[in-house]
Design a protein around this nucleic acid. Structure first.
Length: 254
DNA sequence: ATGGTAGAAACTCTA
């Protein structure tokens, strides 16, 4: 079974690339972020024709998340319970005996800004809820754009980025707090090439220079991690004409 | 110097 996460940065623009990528990657689940679509405009029919049902929650212009799955999705839940938020960043659903949580973490904009404070509050609420989900669902996978590069090896130029948003110590501590619940960073269960990243800024030829960050993650419960046989970043879609600035990350579970 | 690019939408904000 394969599960993937991809920040598509507008599903409207990226739908043709997604439909081209699905038969190649053959994922059973895909978590999408930054769909930037109101629910009425979600391309459910096109995805159904490609073999995927969908649970989605979006809004105009910003944010928006979705879970695509080949198997029927049940127990769909929206947002973080008890954390009031207009921004559509969280959706969870169950299929094939796996609980899947799809996240689009706040970017934070700049350390010390209001958006940064919101990011840390969001992570605080997330941690409490994920603890509950973990207790309810032994086989749990948390996938998404978490907007944190957890370690210096996840940053192309740690000196340049030191203390900046996406890399700052409070953000890294918030990310580690998820691991402390018992989740594993699937990517680090395996040997990986140095300078492996999942996001490259559109500007300054960042992708060409591999000036990226690893901010898209797949976290697995102990039971799911035990059955995990691979985790890769698929850079191919980032090479396309008019790409998303993020690459998909894929895990395979036995 | 606060640059540069992309997306959505509307002449700006977010990333």
């Amino acid at each position: 079974m394969k599960l993937a996460t991809w920040n598509v940065n507008s599903l409207k623009v990226r739908l043709p690339q997604l439909l081209e990528w699905l038969p190649t990657a053959q994922p059973d689940f895909v978590c999408l972020q930054e769909t930037k679509l109101e629910d009425g405009k979600f391309p459910a029919a096109e995805l159904q024709a490609a073999g995927y049902g969908a649970a989605f929650m979006g809004q105009k212009t910003y944010n928006g998340v979705a879970i695509l799955a080949r198997a029927p999705l049940t127990e769909v839940s929206i947002g973080i319970p008890g954390f009031a938020d207009e921004q559509k960043r969280v959706i969870a659903a169950t299929a094939d005996g796996v609980r899947v949580v799809c996240l689009y973490a706040p970017n934070g904009q700049a350390v010390g800004s209001d958006k940064y404070e919101y990011k840390l509050r969001w992570y605080g609420a997330l941690r409490g809820w994920i603890a509950e989900e973990l207790a309810r669902h032994p086989r749990l996978a948390v996938l998404g754009d978490l907007n944190v590069a957890p370690e210096d090896r996840d940053v192309h130029d740690p000196k340049l980025w030191e203390g900046q948003v996406l890399v700052s110590e409070p953000e890294r501590a918030a990310w580690r707090a998820l691991l402390e619940l018992g989740l594993k960073d699937a990517f680090r269960l395996f040997d990986q090439a140095e300078k492996s990243f999942s996001w490259w800024d559109y500007r300054m030829g960042a992708f060409r220079r591999n000036a990226g960050l690893r901010i898209d993650h797949i976290l697995l419960s102990e039971a799911a991690a035990r059955s995990c046989v691979a985790c890769v970043i698929d850079k191919e879609p980032r090479k396309a004409e008019r790409p998303s600035d993020h690459a998909p990350v894929i895990v395979e579970l036995r």
